[in-house]
Write a protein that binds this DNA or RNA. Structure first.
Length: 308
DNA sequence: AACCTCATCAACCGCACCCCT
DNA sequence: AAGGGGTGCGGTTGATGAGGT
């Protein structure tokens, strides 16, 4: 197929374009993106090709799956740890892309912002607003449930598990469930300690805390009556996010999340790439996602993900 | 049925970094 | 050392569909 090289195509990808891109990757690997256009194979920029591959065509992507409760917790915890380093966070979520994580987080932020706003302004007369509050109240309940890992029976998880069955996959079909990347103890029931963490945020800036620091519950803390209502909801880590009270990109911010050192398990042997030289921790690497699905066969499957 | 609002997703853009010459 | 090309990342936006009024 002859393609005019002087035109750059934008917008949704066609199946034929995907096919060309896949063939290119099969031949040359996931690189030399710009050569795809220079060879006249596609009218897409190299960036566009790379993005398409990474976000849609790469093997073992979880396409069409909602984030599971586990994945949501991972994102929340890691966002607190790393800030908006979506690509980095995505390396802990096999099958998820930075775009997925980014989209997930931003829609969550929007939702929470609205929840807080509507709760703060309960006197709404318009039918539209009453509708919103009704809906958001439910949403908040779901969010809250999310943060009670071992106990919850949230609709979200049910939804996730049900939707997972209809999950599509990228062009190489998944034959086995994708295992979550090794994660530290921070996913475990110590989540209750998040309330202490959040209280800590209000009383003492994160930045005063050294890194790493394991969070300890602080039951002895007391609060002014004005804070009681907020505190009634504060066991939800999402709440803080909605305020934007903490800049997690600041060194040490969020460090007290109980992310154990096992998060940086050296057995996750592959490096993240030259870009991350400044970040010695070597998370599980999506680099492998660029290769055939059977590359993941060596990864043992978790017997029970919900056992965290 | 029409309209509205929201959530989700895909894709683009700008910037920064890396590597090569 | 400097410049340019390629690549990766994070922010943003537009399209679309779902659900409620």
């Amino acid at each position: 197929m002859e393609v005019r090289r002087d035109e750059i195509r934008k917008g949704p990808w066609k199946a034929e374009e995907d096919e060309v891109l896949i063939n290119h990757v099969k031949k040359y690997g996931p690189r030399d993106w710009s050569s795809i256009r220079s060879k006249g194979l596609l009218q897409r920029t190299g960036k566009s090709c790379r993005l398409r591959w990474v976000n849609k065509l790469r093997p073992n992507l979880k396409i069409g799956c909602k984030f599971s409760a586990e994945e949501e917790r991972v994102v929340i915890e890691l966002q607190g740890q790393f800030g908006n380093k979506w690509a980095k966070i995505a390396t802990y979520l096999p099958g998820r892309t930075d775009n997925d994580v980014k989209n997930f987080w931003s829609s969550r932020q929007k939702r929470l912002a609205r929840i807080l706003h509507s709760n703060a302004t309960p006197s709404c007369s318009s039918s539209t607003k009453s509708w919103k509050i009704k809906k958001e109240g439910l949403a908040f309940h779901d969010v809250h449930n999310l943060e009670a890992p071992p106990l919850f029976s949230s609709s979200i998880e049910e939804e996730s598990s049900s939707k997972a069955q209809s999950c599509s996959s990228s062009y190489i079909n998944n034959r086995e469930p994708i295992q979550m990347a090794p994660l530290p103890d921070f996913i475990k029931p110590e989540l209750s300690s998040c309330s202490g963490m959040l209280v800590q945020v209000k009383e003492e800036p994160y930045t005063q805390l050294p890194f790493p620091q394991v969070l300890q519950p602080q039951p002895e803390l007391t609060f002014s009556p004005a804070n009681q209502e907020l505190l009634a909801r504060i066991d939800d880590p999402y709440l803080l996010d909605a305020f934007g009270a903490v800049d997690p990109t600041e060194p040490g911010n969020g460090a007290q999340l109980s992310l154990g050192t096992s998060l940086f398990d050296p057995t996750a042997s592959c490096s993240y790439g030259s870009r991350d030289v400044k970040n010695p921790p070597t998370p599980p690497d999506t680099f492998f996602d660029d290769f055939p699905a059977d590359m993941f066969d060596h990864i043992e499957t978790l017997p029970n993900l919900s056992g965290w």
